[in-house]
Structure formats: C-alpha cells, structure tokens
Amino acid sequence: MRAAFLLVALLLAPLAVRAAECLAPPAEMRRTHMDILMHDRSAAARDGARRPGHGLDDCITCHVVRDAGGAAVDAADPRHFCTSCHMKVAVSVDCFSCHRATPTEAAR
C-alpha cells in the first residue's frame, strides 16, 4: 500500500518541479518556439500528452514581467514577455484569448 503511494509520488514528482532554465537557448527559442508550441499544444489538448515543463503555464510563470506594484502584467500590456516582441514584429498572438497570461498568484 505505502509502496504503491510512494511509487505514484515518484512518478508524479517531475510534474511538481519547475524547470530551472528554458527549453532551449534564447536564439533557438526565438526561431523555434512557435513550432514547439504548435506541436505541444496538439499533443496536450488532443492526446493528453502534457510534457512536464512544456505547458504554456510553465513558460509564463518563469517569463513573468511585473509592474512597479509587483503585479504581473497581462498580455494586453506591451511589457508582457510575449507581447513585447510580438508587438514589435507585428505578429498577432492568439494564445491569450484563451490562455491565462499571468501566473496564478499561488505560484509567485
């Protein structure tokens, strides 16, 4: 009984660990993040294959930008991590019409 629960905890542990660094170096991420996102989103939403550390939630939790008061800025704000670049290159970002753009408060 106890062994079974320990096994479960061990298997699920990677889900609880936040990645210490991004999935790839910045130059590579700039080029390929859209492909990674497109692939991961299909796998997650349609097949249920949620790779630990690959959720959009993980990205925005690390790449959070806070304003003077310490609150995370939303996607409409030009300082938001994704918006800051996407606004510059004029490529619209559809993700945050559905996805949360700021970390959940508990994850601060």
Partner: peptide, 13 residues
Amino acid sequence: VANAAPRPPGSAA
C-alpha cells in the same frame, strides 16, 4: 484512482 497506475508524465491518454 490510486489503484489504477497513473500514466507516466508526458504520455498520451
């Protein structure tokens, strides 16, 4: 639920 072994993380349903 604990009885049924959960899927390895990152695996499909």
